[in-house]
Amino acid sequence: MALSAGDKIPDVTLRTPTEDGPKPVQTATVLGSGTVVLFGVPGAFTPACSDTHLPGFVLRADELKAKGVDTVACVSVNDAFVLDAWAKARNADGAVLMLADGNAEFAAAAGLEMDGSKFGLGTRSRRFAAVVTDGVVQWIGVEEVAGTVDVSGVESVLAQL
């Protein structure tokens, strides 16, 4: 069953890029305190993810913070090295916490995995965005159509805050 309002964020180990290389982090720790906007993407550098989804959150990070958001985080089924390169390419460093879900463990635990094998991608995360307060989902928007950024875009999130 997919993650929904009222659910606790699954606690799994992800990796985040740092200056010293990938660092393991627990989702209960990095997503479990304060108000967090978490958005998930199928993959770094893919068209909708790279051209629309991530840039929206980077460009409007100050608006999110002004509405009480403590952390903006992106989870993707990629390794931390790819997420580091993607953050640098899209000027997300400092604005968005990048979380690598290399084995799709978070996506599976959240019930948000998708089969991207017909595109050569294997198991990936569905595109989504959520508002999380102290580790509990307050709102979540999951895209029904691949390649779209409607209910999971920054505008939808801002409307929920």
Rank of each mutant, 00 (worst) to 15 (best):
V25E: 02
V25W: 04
V82C: 04
D51T: 13
T123H: 12
G116T: 08
F45A: 02
R126F: 08
D84N: 14
R124V: 03
R126T: 08
V12M: 00
D115T: 09
R60N: 15
P55S: 07
L121T: 08
V12C: 05
D51H: 12
R127A: 04
K65D: 15
G122R: 09
N103H: 15
R60Y: 12
A61P: 06
K8G: 12
D20H: 10
A73R: 08
P42D: 07
G68W: 11
T18A: 10
A110G: 07
A130F: 00
G68R: 10
G94P: 13
A110C: 08
D101M: 04
F106W: 07
R124Y: 06
T27Y: 06
L64W: 06
P22I: 08
L97V: 12
C74S: 02
A28C: 13
K118S: 13
G141Y: 08
D20Y: 13
D51I: 10
D62H: 11
D51L: 13
A95S: 14
V41G: 06
A109Y: 00
A87H: 03
V25H: 03
T13A: 09
L99F: 05
P55Q: 07
G68D: 09
S50D: 09
D115C: 09
G111S: 06
V41N: 01
V132D: 08
S117R: 11
H53C: 05
P55A: 04
V58W: 05
F81Q: 00
G122N: 11
G135H: 06
